[in-house]
Amino acid sequence: MDFLVANFAEILFYCFAALTVAGAVGVLVLRSPVHAALSLLLTFVMVGALFLLRHAELLAAVQVLVYGGGIMVLFLFVIMLVNVKGLASSEVFLSELAPLAVVGGVLLGILVAFALVFGVFASGQGDGTALRSAGGEVLGNTEAVGMVLYTTYLVPFEVVSVVLLVAMIGAIVFGRRSAAFERRGGEEGP
């Protein structure tokens, strides 16, 4: 019991990290897109929990709302819309270069991990109160992030809103039935 109390933060981190990796592996190995999407949802929620452990309360809420709510619904909606099971070539699972890609990815991971762990700039502890104070007084994470976002980072914030608008227009254009395609009478090319 003492061990549990003394190491509670570590136990929480390792549980959340294990579930995060399990969800990510599930995305890779599950055949059904719906199962892969639900596995991805597990990863999103667990990453949100990991944000909480690092005193990023606003980001944790945004993670669950935007990823777990918005993007996941978008994925499930598209899976439902295109009816993946009925498509012809959905049995093609892996590309021919799969073993090479897996070996390359694992090697890259080991390389970067060595560089970072032995480069040691990540040890030591931070200070949670700095992430909650806005303008000199301690309020909360949301107030602090909002204060920085709307003062120091106001211009990038506006630019990102334009990016979102362009993406929205682009998605609508892609989703429309193309007029030029219709005029050529449907099937053209291979």
Partner: peptide, 12 residues
């Protein structure tokens, strides 16, 4: 790395 492997390996 799991993400990179997924992008390279899966065809869906």
């Amino acid at each position: 790395c799991l993400g990179i492997i997924g992008v390279m390996v899966r065809r869906n």
